[in-house]
Computed example of a mutant assay.
Amino acid sequence: MELTRRALLGLGLGSVALAALAGCGQRDAAPALRLACGERGGTYLQFGENFRDRLDARRPGAVRVVETEGSADNVDLLRRGDADLGLCLADLAAERADGLQAVGRVYQNYLQCLVRADSGLTDAAQLAGLTVSIGAPGSGAAVAARRVIESGDPGRWPRTRQLPLRAALDALEARELDAVFFSGGVPIPELVDRPPATPLRLLDLDEPADRLAQDWPEFYRPVEIAAGVYPEQGEARTVGIANLLLVRPDVAADAVRLLVDVLVDEAPRLVPPGSLGVQYLTESSLIDTAPLELHPGALAAYRSRYG
């Protein structure tokens, strides 16, 4: 059940737990928390590095960033105890993150479908019979991408592959793929840092975006991407998906409280400059982590801030 602001204010941890939190600054420095992020060139990793840098200013070495393939990989690492924190799309968290908790709902990803500018493709229905990448094997993009694909005629679904972002973009330019789905901020850092030699543009996902929002309103909503975010791209409609910062339940409450402090106080410095999708990184939305419960340390931190 989604945790509302009113419900949060009505919850408490008890005087003993709060007293323990008050003395947390006197403890010896804990080992660095391992934050599972995403691929080099993606928004997850850039967000994680920004988050680590802001934490370092308060408690040096508090967090170590781990490169991964994305949401699914992050959940697996958390379950195995090979990571303490991890970024994850909310739709995948609902399927696979049982037993984990959340620090907050941080920002919004965009499901994006890139095609070559000269392809002539204008909507998702035209992908029928073509070959598309739906994200790296360990990414979370595949959940929403498959739902977009499967919203069309079952007899006309495209052939799918799962490639890491850079490999998928190279294959798209080489005409080995017809489209590349991925999830991230807009623009994706990889395309800013390494502009493609072949002009690319976003495919409009207008119809499937409405269908996903109707079928899974707790996870998806239609969003607009302005013309010119990528060269050769006009206005496009696509799917917005919330990101959660997940945490293992055994992470210390005082460490989680520090994470919340940075998420709230440093919000403008966490999402990469120029990226869209920052509307979720606000005090009022951070607590809405359905389908997962907040970690008790996060609960205490939000409660103290909200009075």
Score class of each variant (00 low, 15 high):
154 P>Q: 11
255 A>I: 05
157 W>I: 02
18 L>Y: 03
283 E>M: 15
260 V>E: 02
281 L>I: 09
84 D>G: 08
80 R>N: 10
249 P>N: 09
47 F>K: 02
3 L>K: 03
73 D>Q: 08
184 G>Y: 05
152 G>R: 07
169 L>E: 01
137 P>H: 04
280 Y>K: 10
158 P>F: 08
1 M>D: 13
252 A>D: 13
132 V>H: 00
218 E>N: 00
273 P>A: 13
199 P>H: 08
244 L>R: 08
117 A>M: 07
118 D>V: 11
22 A>N: 00
45 L>G: 00
271 V>P: 04
202 L>R: 00
86 G>T: 02
138 G>Y: 00
234 G>Y: 04
111 L>G: 03
157 W>A: 12
88 C>I: 05
4 T>L: 05
272 P>S: 10
272 P>D: 05
141 A>V: 06
170 D>A: 13
184 G>A: 11
10 G>D: 07
132 V>Q: 00
141 A>I: 02
298 A>Y: 02
256 V>A: 05
115 V>D: 04
295 H>L: 10
138 G>C: 06
288 D>M: 11
247 V>E: 06
50 N>Q: 13
28 D>W: 09
201 R>C: 14
198 T>C: 12
284 S>I: 03
199 P>R: 01
187 P>F: 06
230 Y>C: 06
202 L>P: 07
99 G>Q: 09
6 R>C: 02
20 A>M: 11
163 L>Q: 04
136 A>Q: 07
129 G>D: 09
37 C>M: 05
153 D>V: 09
147 R>P: 00
155 G>P: 04
244 L>Y: 07
121 L>H: 02
114 L>H: 15
155 G>M: 12
278 V>E: 12
133 S>F: 05
50 N>L: 08
247 V>P: 06
72 A>V: 11
292 L>K: 05
189 P>S: 03
32 A>I: 09
170 D>P: 00
251 V>G: 03
244 L>N: 00
226 A>L: 14
7 A>E: 15
126 Q>T: 09
15 S>L: 15
27 R>T: 14
40 R>N: 12
146 R>V: 02
6 R>G: 00
256 V>I: 15
257 R>W: 12
285 S>W: 12
19 A>I: 01
157 W>D: 01
290 A>D: 14
233 Q>M: 14
188 I>C: 11
256 V>T: 01
165 L>M: 08
267 A>E: 07
204 D>N: 15
44 Y>R: 01
48 G>A: 15
47 F>H: 04
182 F>G: 03
109 N>I: 08
104 G>R: 01
239 V>L: 09
277 G>I: 07
242 A>M: 09
229 V>Y: 06
254 D>P: 01
207 E>L: 12
162 Q>C: 10
119 S>I: 04
178 D>V: 03
167 A>E: 15
122 T>L: 10
268 P>N: 13
92 L>H: 12
192 V>G: 04
44 Y>G: 11
72 A>G: 15
217 P>A: 07
136 A>S: 14
286 L>D: 03
144 A>M: 00
208 P>V: 06
234 G>T: 07
231 P>D: 10
110 Y>C: 04
25 G>D: 14
31 P>C: 09
152 G>A: 06
202 L>C: 04
107 Y>T: 08
239 V>E: 02
3 L>Q: 05
67 E>S: 13
94 A>Q: 14
122 T>C: 10
303 R>D: 05
159 R>G: 01
173 E>R: 07
133 S>C: 11
213 A>K: 05
121 L>E: 09
118 D>L: 08
48 G>N: 06
243 N>L: 15
155 G>Y: 07
177 L>V: 08
248 R>K: 01
